[in-house]
């Protein structure tokens, strides 16, 4: 039987080489070998995706490859996720995500969504070209910790500002994260968002930081 190291390496490689069947197989092996599924996700699948990010940055991989790697990753994730035990004390983080009205760019948004999926968040994907009110309604409906919006055009980006105002009015505790090519941290601050991430790679850690800050604030640690 393969060692845990070998299984992790296989998961990683299956993601990098976009081999969907291999990825599913390795995920099953991980379960059969009694590995902690969270370790398989993080040190196998996510580690593979990290490598993909490097290949992308060095012009070795382009968007088609990245999308195929994501498909392979989901094949493994679908098998592993049902086995991840939830810690009853720590509430599961959740996010509502979508590309704003008028914007049909969704490739980047889908990669960000994948990272939240990998991290085990509850993800509510509204898709692309999402009417501004729909963000507000969905957030209030599922009471997600985070509302994440993507805009790829300087112009549709303006819609985010309106959503932030609408959401904050109804639910001041909702944390809002922005992203997409024209968005910068300055823009996010200016619009009244709580967080920003430049790429999928750091979206989740930004989300966790935002939640951490809010919890401390609620406990009264930060004034």
């Amino acid at each position: 039987m393969a060692t845990h190291e070998e299984i992790l390496a296989k998961l990683k490689e299956a993601v990098v080489e976009y081999e969907e069947d291999d990825c599913a197989e390795a995920a099953q092996e991980a379960l059969d070998a009694g590995m902690d599924p969270m370790v398989a996700v993080m040190d196998g699948l996510a580690a593979g995706m990290e490598k993909v990010g490097v290949l992308f940055d060095t012009n070795e991989y382009f968007v088609p490859e990245v999308l195929m790697c994501a498909d392979a990753l989901y094949k493994g994730l679908d098998i592993l996720r049902p086995h991840i035990k939830l810690d009853a004390d720590v509430p599961k983080a959740s996010v509502v995500i979508g590309s704003v009205q008028g914007d049909v760019h969704d490739i980047g948004k889908n990669l960000v969504k994948m990272m939240f999926d990998v991290a085990g968040w509850d993800v509510h994907d509204l898709g692309r070209d999402v009417p501004l009110e729909t963000f507000v309604e969905k957030q209030l409906d599922v009471k997600s910790d985070v509302l994440a919006m993507s805009a790829m055009m300087t112009t549709t980006m303006m819609g985010m500002k309106k959503v932030i105002a609408m959401v904050k009015e109804k639910n001041p505790d909702c944390l809002i994260m922005l992203g997409g090519a024209p968005v910068t941290r300055d823009v996010a601050n200016l619009f009244g968002a709580d967080g920003y991430a430049e790429s999928a790679g750091n979206a989740v850690s930004e989300g966790i930081k935002m939640i951490g800050r809010l919890r401390e604030y609620q406990k009264g640690d930060i004034k």
Binding site: Q101, G102, V104, D129, T155, T156, M158
Partner: peptide
């Protein structure tokens, strides 16, 4: 075709 007739500001038509 989505024309966004009721949206504020300028939004270009897109393919739904």
């Amino acid at each position: 075709i989505s024309l966004y007739e009721n949206a504020e500001g300028i939004i270009y038509p897109t393919v739904p």
